[in-house]
Write a protein that binds this DNA or RNA. Structure first.
Lengths: 242, 242
DNA sequence: TTGGACCAATGGTCCGACCAATTTCGAGGT
DNA sequence: ACCTCGAAATTGGTCGGACCATTGGTCCAA
């Protein structure tokens, strides 16, 4: 009897989510598309708007959906009925240790993603990455410094081409955790500056389908970020003393 | 202005969660403890029960809390204000692809964790790992096969000694996802058998503080699991044809 | 053409009521 | 004194309806 999953006594919202997932599938909705109104769903599914809202709140918490007051509810990721979600929560302070820990995870995953990307990138994927790279380089020269947005787009492209969506999901979370506490790199004016040349080097290794080379360049890139963090931590210490 | 984070116009439920997180911290509540009633919270926080419920629904979706009708709401995990959520979404169920994707993440993280572990393990930590290793080896000889529980304990010890709790949490999530998809290794009787010798090899590299060696052994270990998975997939295919 | 006032649609919050599962507790019997 | 059983209180789940705040578009006038 232990295999018997304890069923939820009340499963109204789950039912709503299943129906909604089917709707998304049937309708072929893509990320960015708008879902039906809460009021419409409530009427169509014959449940109260409260229940619909609880269900959507669940999806919102899982990052599947985004709600914009006055506008509507929008799909943020591909959803289908046979997906399973594994929320993971951890404490992360703004101390040097925590930031370094997110970078340790990134170091491991960036290297692997780069290697897989080099193995799997076809011509179309390479063109896609090249586009992001050039946008980043252009922004760099225009502002005489790293542009976090274009830089991030380049990295996202690599995760995407790796063929494993988990890389993007996990690294994005690390990235967000990192920048939540360090939006204005403490006293490090040229934050990320040193990483610039490694982007093209990484791209070249990917074009050459050189997995080990790509891994090495990704490691060098992350190493510059770790350096920046160390410098920032040193600055912070000085400021504290002052 | 790109650094300007778009703030949520209305953040009542977020505020509720923050206050509640503080409450849990101050009160020293542990997993299993009961939270105040929705009605009490609503009154104390001067917000409607609806808002309290939306907030708790978020936490429930994140697995932080469990609600039992007629009984109350119970803490399921340690919560604090500076907590980070990483919702992972896995593509459709049972296919070989999903399993392999969890292993790709593990490969990257296992290798890095092993390397860090080799760098950072002191005498006490090494003794701790040795204990787990010997328990695993004993179980192996007793049952003439890998014991998943002792095996997992050994790996957990390594993640723990790495000094970065993120390794243990993320890899555990991958592990759970893997086994949810594949509870009964399809037709692979000696699942994990091939990985046995690499455990001691990995331990030896850690004792020697040989980071690169530890990384290499961890990679070999994961490679055997990938092999098992491939064999299982082949079996499955045969079964399908039959 | 453009600027601004207005309006409808949509998510966010609130209230009060009732339903359903669980727990509590006391009456009644042993 | 102890146990059993059922009523009542407690607690989360659902409902309907109301109003607020934000957004996006429309329409009018300068």
């Amino acid at each position: 009897m232990s295999t018997l999953q304890s069923i939820r006594p009340t499963a109204r919202d789950d039912a709503v989510l299943n129906v909604l997932a089917d709707f998304v599938t049937v309708e072929g909705l893509q990320p960015g598309d708008r879902l039906p109104t809460e009021r419409v769903l409530s009427e169509r599914l014959k449940v109260s708007r409260t229940t619909v809202r609880e269900a959507l709140t669940r999806w919102e918490g899982l990052g599947l959906v985004e709600r914009r007051q006055g506008s509507g509810t929008y799909l943020k990721a591909a959803v289908s009925r046979d997906m399973f979600h594994l929320p993971l929560t951890f404490a992360s302070g703004n101390d040097f240790e925590s930031l370094m820990q997110t970078l340790e995870i990134r170091r491991a995953l960036e290297a692997e993603a780069a290697a897989l990307c080099a193995q799997r990138a076809g011509p179309k994927e390479i063109a896609f990455i090249r586009e992001k790279l050039e946008a980043m380089e252009e922004a760099f020269h225009a502002h005489a410094g790293m542009s976090s947005e274009e830089d991030w787009d380049f990295h996202l492209a690599i995760y995407s081409v790796s063929g494993n969506p988990l890389f993007g999901q996990i690294i994005s979370a690390m990235h967000e955790a990192f920048h939540r506490f360090w939006e204005h790199p403490l006293g490090v004016r040229d934050f990320g500056h040193a990483s610039f040349p490694y982007h093209r080097a990484l791209y070249d290794r990917i074009v050459a389908h050189d997995a080990d080379g790509a891994r090495a360049e990704a490691l060098k890139l992350i190493a510059t970020v770790e350096d920046d963090l160390r410098r920032g931590a040193a600055n912070l210490k000085t400021a504290d003393i002052k």
